Amino acid sequence: MPQFFKQAVDLDQYQGLIFDMDGTIVDSGQLHEKAWLETLERHNIFVSREFMRGLAGVPTLQTIELAAKQSNVKLSENEINLMMGEKETFVHAHFSEFVKATALEKIIKQYYKKLPMAVGTGASTQEAHNFLKQTGLFEYFDAIVGCDQVVNGKPKGDTFLLGAQKINVDPKHCIVFEDAEFGFMAAIDAGMDVVDVKEAYNIHNDYFL
């Protein structure tokens, strides 16, 4: 049975480490907050900060759909695609101003070449590459799984399962580092232990607080 931890655990008992990206190994909260505020308001979608915080870790498409539903705004497929493009454009234009590594950088470097490591994120693969290169973490990972590589994003476990597959480790021997509720659910769904980095490592993502 997968375990959920709120304290640091002995990582040497695992055969593979899988990390969420935004809010876990990458501090990008303000970047995504500003991108969402600009994009949603342009399309007359207004939701609470608490609601957006609750969607941390959810892929862009699902975030738009859920935010529109919450605001009783009906969007066409073209409008959704437009919003996805607008949000991505903002992030691409401004990520170098905001993105930096979190304190988990120390653990990543500590276990480099000792245990295989993967990133499993609700962001696109290209965005993950950009962010990880910006923070200097890209070279430490054996695999990077973005939302475009799976059919079902978080809270389903597909992202983490593909990460485990890419590093050739049985899911039951992996532990996931996560900061968001949907990510915890995804790890448990994948049959993996998961640690809440907010509690265990004092990692806090300044996203719609």
Rank of each mutant, 00 (worst) to 15 (best):
F90T: 12
H92K: 14
H92Y: 09
A101S: 15
L104S: 07
L104N: 03
L104P: 06
E105N: 13
I108Y: 03
Y111P: 08
Y112P: 02
Y112C: 12
K113W: 06
K113C: 06
K114H: 11
P116T: 12
A118R: 04
V119G: 05
A123I: 12
S124Q: 07
T125V: 15
E127H: 10
A128D: 01
H129L: 11
N130G: 00
F131N: 10
K133S: 11
L137S: 11
F138L: 13
E139R: 09
E139M: 13
Y140K: 01
Y140Q: 02
F141S: 03
G146V: 10
C147L: 06
V150F: 07
V151F: 04
K154L: 07
K154M: 09
G157S: 06
D158C: 06
T159G: 03
T159W: 00
F160Q: 07
L161W: 09
L162D: 00
L162F: 02
G163L: 08
K166S: 05
I167E: 03
I167C: 03
D170I: 14
P171A: 08
K172I: 15
K172P: 03
C174V: 15
E181L: 13
F182H: 11
F182P: 00
A186Y: 02
I188L: 15
M192A: 08
M192Y: 04
M192P: 01
D193S: 09
V194E: 02
V195A: 05
V195P: 04
V195F: 00
